[in-house]
Computed example of a mutant assay.
Amino acid sequence: MNDQRPAPGNANDLLRLLSRAERLEALPRTGWQICGVERPESIAAHVHGVMLVALWLADHHPEPTPDAERVMRIALVHDLSEAMLTDLPRPVKQLLGKEAVDRAEEQAADHILATLPSWRDAYREYREGKTLEARIVKVADRIQMLAKALEYRQQKRGDISRFFDDDETFDDRGVEPARAIFDALRTCYREGRWFDFHFD
């Protein structure tokens, strides 16, 4: 009988990955701090929100039907490089330049996902943003950010107006269900409302 157990090294690969990925739980989303939000969400919390939105978009997308498992894989790894680099806010990225930031993020992903080529491919797919699944995650990333901005405004935790002043933020990238969501987010922003904390 063949022994199908994985090689011992694979266990260490998983534990190493887990130790690196769990850093996202302690690292804040620094863009919120710049807006005056104290104790903002962690990168890990953001990733969870993006996965939730991305799966909803995948489930509600008309033909062609996206590969939901692929969407989840991409969403899970889309910010994994930040375990090494932290969440660099936009002013920092602009100062460093897109080429330098892209190179650093790619190198961080290479390091973290060295033993997981299929996960590395998912990260690359997200960066390139060409497939339907990658575009769904990119849109989900924006939707989660805007929803979080409205939540922070309701809590009076900072000035989030700049997130709604940039038309590029509302690019639906051809993901049909996202159009109505962006419209609803803009309406909530204009009308100064968001959902309360009760389950009413």
Score class of each variant (00 low, 15 high):
D3C: 03
R5D: 09
A7Q: 15
P8L: 08
G9V: 06
G9D: 07
G9F: 13
N10I: 06
N12D: 13
N12S: 05
D13F: 07
L15H: 06
L18S: 04
L18A: 11
R20G: 06
A21E: 05
E22Q: 12
L24D: 01
A26T: 14
L27N: 05
R29L: 10
T30A: 07
G31T: 10
W32G: 07
Q33V: 15
Q33K: 10
I34Y: 11
I34E: 14
I34V: 05
I34G: 08
C35K: 15
V37Q: 05
V37W: 00
S42T: 09
I43F: 12
A44I: 03
A45F: 00
H46P: 02
V47R: 06
V47T: 12
G49A: 04
G49W: 00
V50Y: 10
M51T: 03
L52G: 04
L55H: 13
D59C: 04
D59V: 01
H60A: 07
H61A: 01
P62V: 11
E63H: 12
E63K: 09
P66K: 04
E69T: 11
M72S: 08
R73F: 02
I74N: 03
A75T: 02
H78F: 01
D79M: 01
L80D: 00
E82D: 09
E82I: 03
M84R: 08
M84W: 09
D87Y: 02
D87Q: 07
P89N: 05
R90H: 07
V92F: 06
K93H: 04
Q94C: 06
L95E: 11
L95T: 09
L96R: 11
G97H: 03
G97S: 05
K98I: 11
A100I: 13
V101M: 02
D102T: 06
R103D: 08
A108F: 00
A109V: 01
A114K: 07
T115A: 10
P117T: 08
R120A: 10
D121R: 13
A122G: 02
E125A: 05
E128F: 10
E128H: 08
E128G: 08
K130C: 13
K130H: 15
K130D: 04
L132V: 08
E133K: 04
E133D: 12
I136G: 02
K138C: 06
A140T: 09
A149S: 14
L150F: 15
R153Y: 11
R153A: 01
Q154M: 14
Q155G: 08
K156W: 05
R157W: 00
G158C: 02
G158H: 00
I160E: 10
I160Y: 00
S161I: 02
R162Q: 09
R162K: 12
D165S: 14
D166V: 13
D167F: 00
E168Q: 13
E168V: 08
T169L: 07
T169A: 13
F170C: 02
D172G: 03
R173L: 15
V175A: 11
V175S: 09
E176Q: 15
I181S: 12
I181A: 10
F182S: 00
F182C: 01
F182R: 09
D183S: 10
A184H: 14
L185D: 03
L185G: 03
L185F: 09
T187Q: 14
T187Y: 15
C188T: 13
Y189G: 03
G192D: 12
W194F: 15
F195L: 15
F199T: 12
D200S: 12
